[in-house]
Design a protein around this nucleic acid. Sequence first.
DNA 1: GTCTATACCCTGATAGAC
DNA 2: GTCTATCAGGGTATAGAC
Lengths: 214, 214
Amino acid sequence: MPRPARVSPEKILAAAAAEFAERGYAGARVDRIARRARVNKAMLYYHFASKQGLYRTLLRQVFGAIATQLQAIAATESLDPAAKLDAAVATLAVHIEAHRYFPSIMLREVADGGTHLDAETLAALAAVPAAFAAILRPGIANGAFREMHPIAAYFTTIAPILMFVASGPVRTQIVSRKHVQLPGSPLTTDAFLADLTTSLQRAFAAAPVRQKRS
Amino acid sequence: MPRPARVSPEKILAAAAAEFAERGYAGARVDRIARRARVNKAMLYYHFASKQGLYRTLLRQVFGAIATQLQAIAATESLDPAAKLDAAVATLAVHIEAHRYFPSIMLREVADGGTHLDAETLAALAAVPAAFAAILRPGIANGAFREMHPIAAYFTTIAPILMFVASGPVRTQIVSRKHVQLPGSPLTTDAFLADLTTSLQRAFAAAPVRQKRS
DNA sequence: GTCTATACCCTGATAGAC
DNA sequence: GTCTATCAGGGTATAGAC
């Protein structure tokens, strides 16, 4: 039988995601999370032991979700290496579109050095580069991609996506000021991703036998 | 005549850089900054009006310093486009090595959406991509690089550098746990930068006339 | 310019009724 | 499970002596 719909924990997690993404762990306020979730603060502490406990639970979920999606791509045997790389970027993009808080949380956790995380949450975080490495591995093995370190490829791929999306608000603020400019015309996320995809395919492709220009 | 050596403000700024990098704006403690700088907290408020004022002054300096270095590369006429790109990456790397706090602060400010910044500080931040765009411009103009949006190229270049370096602590924490792994062997910053340089040269180079493999 | 002491607010967390 | 009331600790900032 379907367990009684405990809507509170899910609503709290959703509110926490938004709050932690906007303010970071230290800047987040438990009061604000409770208000956003429309639950009483005592209720929040009833479901989650503490601010830290809530944070860890949230991050385990966030990292787990994205790792699972990347693992699915790695396991799809019908895709050739280049298609898998494109699929990884596209999947990241779709996931971010549906979960706007993801980039900021990832960036903040990197900057925080994993201070607020326990072993289990760190493991969930580590699953993300592991899944990405699994996506690239066949391509490197069969010579479609050049020899490269999986961690290097990982950061070369996801860092631009995360930072571009997360920087949306700053870029908006900069452009909205008089006398301050950003080079080039406004750049949409789709256009950015298209450009990045081109860059990554060229960056990772096995070196052409001869490629000379004078 | 040389103005009396006011060592305090510089020491405070240095301490603030470390504290804000490690904890972020919200997580930073004025007490701790004062203690790190070995000055009294009242002294800190004497030189800087507030925590926010200190933060803005620091960031203006941080962003200004890196923008200046990139502008110098852009202005060096003896370098060809590919060399300028390599020089930009190398300069970023050297600057980060000398100022370890830089990547975390940049990441955090992106995630924070520029909330704590005033117009002047935002302008200093905007000068960084502007300088980078100036580095690439001649290469795009003369056909050495492919057509690409300067902002796309900017994030494709600096995001990996910033995130790789800033993620040092998390990666260390992950690896230090039993039962949690990161793919590949340990990756040094130098090896990462070498790989990234290769990736970027290929990513930005004008499309070779023909590059086919079957 | 430098320091001590302190005001005052905010925040995470809990007690205890219902 | 849900809510009100409240506390203890720690945070920014300043007053005022030297």
